[in-house]
Amino acid sequence: MLFSESTVILGIETSCDETAAAVVMGGNDVLSSVVATQIDLHARYGGVVPEIASRAHVEAMNVVIRQAISQSGVPIERIDAVAATVGPGLIGALLVGVAAAKSVALVLDKPFIGVNHLEAHLYAALLDDPHVEFPMLVVLVSGGNTLFVEMRGHGDFSVIGQTIDDAAGEAFDKVARFLDLGHPGGPAIDRIALTGNPNAIDFPRAMLHDGLDVSFSGLKTSVINYVRKNPTVSTADVAASFQYAVVDVLAAKARKAAQQIGAKTVALGGGVAANSLLRSTMTTVCAESGWRLVLPSMSMCTDNAAMIASAGWYRLVADGPSSMDMGAMPNLKLT
């Protein structure tokens, strides 16, 4: 079978705490995208509990697929291939989506495509804006990752910088938990920071001048130490100053990385790409340097299955289907 712009892919995503399914045509035309979030189930534990996530995926999977199919207007028999996240992620959670996706593909007698979740995040930005010029720098910032990725073309990329300890989103979550702002921490800090002074506290910018790697573990520790020493400090000022420090580092490294690869385009991806200060700062940075900035819509920043179907389409066209023997790969890297 030949795969083309009219190839319709059912994407399935269950790597963490969102059960998602989507129908995408030709890699970029999102016909439907359904996400059932489990945020409420995990909130009281202050983080995602793998077994709770896996159980919730089993219960939600069928309904989510059903909705994605019906909202797409494409009958299930007209699906040309089924793509699912095979990693990285929580093993038990991944397996629910992989098992469901391979079964749908088997019964429909259509190809299965195992998708790298991180690669899918690279494609999330392109769903809203598919005709970008390469080379492109993708700044992928989420709860699990902080990666600077050079993308030379579809399926042709390399990681040129990353965090050596905590991911940016992880730092947001940990600081939010410490400040009692709830989970997930990103939106909570973003919200309260609007009322605070970002210059109130001069938190450290680690590794600002070395290479393209970043570190957020020390920043988190200095926030905690500062609040313990100054218990009456305004939470809004702490949040705003912390957020400013994170964004300052990310923007500086992004600028350096984009210069290094001679980027024509810069894209953001991952949950932290929804952060309002990061978006506005990157808008300024890119305008100054003449790079085109691709900002994914909020719904494409966080985990979804449209990006899985999209990345699946590019993989299918380039490499053909995956084996039906494929299982989950919880520690899959972006290579």
Binding site: S54, H57, V58, M61, N62, I65, R66, I76, G92, L95, V96, G97, A99, A100, A101, K102, S103, V104, L106, V107, L108
Partner: peptide, 13 residues
């Protein structure tokens, strides 16, 4: 869950 997710998907399709 592998068997259950597979069976549920097959029955649905």
């Amino acid at each position: 869950r592998v068997g259950i997710a597979s069976a549920k998907a097959i029955a649905q399709v």
